[in-house]
């Protein structure tokens, strides 16, 4: 009631072609990530794997899960989830990554 205006498009019907196209991209990306993992490019392996996973995840969320056509509130929910997950991981790592930092002896 209070926020009806922004929510009118939940029932958006996307064309079937779009879904198939997304599916094709996802499959291609899966193949890419496997192939890249077989090549040793040092620390970039992780980066590439995670970037590809994030692209795939974004496509799933935006199109299969209709986030693109969803109200702002839904987007806020997704952003909140990402943000809090980031808080959990990053603040925990502030401890683990600085454990080895030296505390120089006093005096």
């Amino acid at each position: 009631m209070a926020e009806h205006k922004e929510t009118g498009s939940v029932g958006h019907i996307a064309p079937a072609k779009l879904y198939v196209a997304i599916w094709a991209i996802l499959t291609a990306l899966t193949l890419t990530t496997v192939l890249v993992s077989l090549v040793d490019i040092g620390p970039m392996n992780v980066v590439v794997a995670l970037v590809i996973a994030t692209i795939k995840g974004t496509l799933v969320v935006l199109f299969f899960m209709h986030l693109r056509y969803s109200p702002k509130l839904t987007m806020a929910t997704v952003v909140a989830a990402m943000f809090w997950l980031f808080l959990l991981l990053s603040l925990t790592m502030t401890d683990y990554l600085t454990r080895a930092w030296p505390t120089y002896p006093g005096h």
Partner: peptide, 13 residues
């Protein structure tokens, strides 16, 4: 989609 690279594709070396 995240579990796959995290668990399977860490490094081939």
């Amino acid at each position: 989609i995240y579990l796959f690279p995290m668990l399977y594709l860490i490094s081939k070396k």
